[in-house]
Simulated assay, not measured.
Amino acid sequence: MKYNRKPELESINGQKRKLKTKPLILLIGILLAFNIFWFIGWLIPDKSKQTDEEVASVAGKPITREQWMSAMEKEVGRETLLELVNEKVMAVAAEQYGIKVSDKEIDLEIALIRSVDGRSHSGQDEDEMRQKIRSNLILEKVLTKDVVVKDKAIKKQFDENTALYNVLTAYRTAIIVVPTKTDAEQTIDELSKGSSFDVLAKERSTDLASASLGGDIGYINDSTDSIDKKIIETVSDANEGSTSGVIALSDGTYAVIRVSEVVKGQSFKFNEVKDHIKRELALEQLPQTVSPEAFWKEFDAKWFYGN
């Protein structure tokens, strides 16, 4: 019957020959496998080339990526890894003890921190700051979960420190400090032509602490006493995203500032800060300060630097 016949092809000279399907399928499979292996090889980077890659040179002598990465690991590797491990440990602790941290709680902590010490988070972006606060809140909740604090004590703490919970408007500020008025005018001119504030701060600012952070001095407000009063006056009238003119400072130097964010002030009611106050009073009852490392053994934390 016709449908049982094997496939046939017409040859050039009119003769018929059978089509051999198995060798053809095998050949296609080999070619397909070759292409897959080639694609995988193309995706996987050549580590030897990566480590030998030149990232800089001095007097014709190269600095390789491997040297660069090794130097960074020695400089900040231990501290960075420590933060990552502690964040993971606290995340596991939260899951283990059924502890939750809401965005509203983090917002409250940020507001209170800004009102007391806005410079504590200078150089950090919003996500980094929130993650650190989240981990710290988990730690505090784990440590204080069994500590008893009476409502009367919490209310007394609130009544005696109401000013702490009336948060002033804060301004995320960056600064470039230069020796002369001419230097400040030149800085403003370059900024108007599109130069980066961060880069100019690192290159020119004589305030070394902020210069290394691109001029960032964190959040300041009307009560910040560690900042020149002229800067406070200037930011109080500034809009978000604005850059100032020349500011004459009390020590004889000059400054140009940029306000990247304005956080409106707010007053917190007792019920909004009750849990925060309770944790603070509970922590005062603990015999000693405890860090996330105290939980490493409990949650089987291991790292590159050993015990």
Rank of each mutant, 00 (worst) to 15 (best):
A59Q: 06
I30L: 15
D207N: 13
I113G: 04
G241K: 05
S115N: 15
K274F: 10
N166R: 07
N239H: 05
A170I: 02
V116M: 12
D103G: 15
F268I: 06
N35V: 14
E75R: 12
Q131T: 09
S242E: 10
K18T: 13
G306I: 06
W42F: 14
W42D: 12
I247Y: 10
D107Q: 04
V199H: 05
T187Y: 11
Q131N: 06
D198K: 14
L27P: 01
V101I: 15
G265A: 03
I257T: 00
K156V: 02
A93N: 05
E75M: 10
P7L: 11
N86K: 05
A248W: 00
K22I: 12
D46K: 09
G60C: 06
I138T: 05
A163C: 00
S70K: 07
V147D: 00
V55Q: 08
I175Q: 09
M1R: 07
R119E: 12
E233S: 14
E293A: 12
G252I: 09
L143N: 01
S236E: 10
K193Q: 13
M1V: 06
Q124E: 01
S70M: 03
Q131M: 11
P287R: 02
G218Q: 04
K297A: 15
I176P: 04
P292L: 03
V149D: 00
S205F: 08
M69E: 12
K88N: 13
R204S: 06
N239D: 13
D151H: 05
V101W: 10
L43N: 03
E190D: 13
K269H: 04
I220E: 00
A248S: 15
A184W: 06
S48A: 14
E73H: 08
E261T: 12
K150W: 03
L286Y: 07
V142Y: 08
L27C: 09
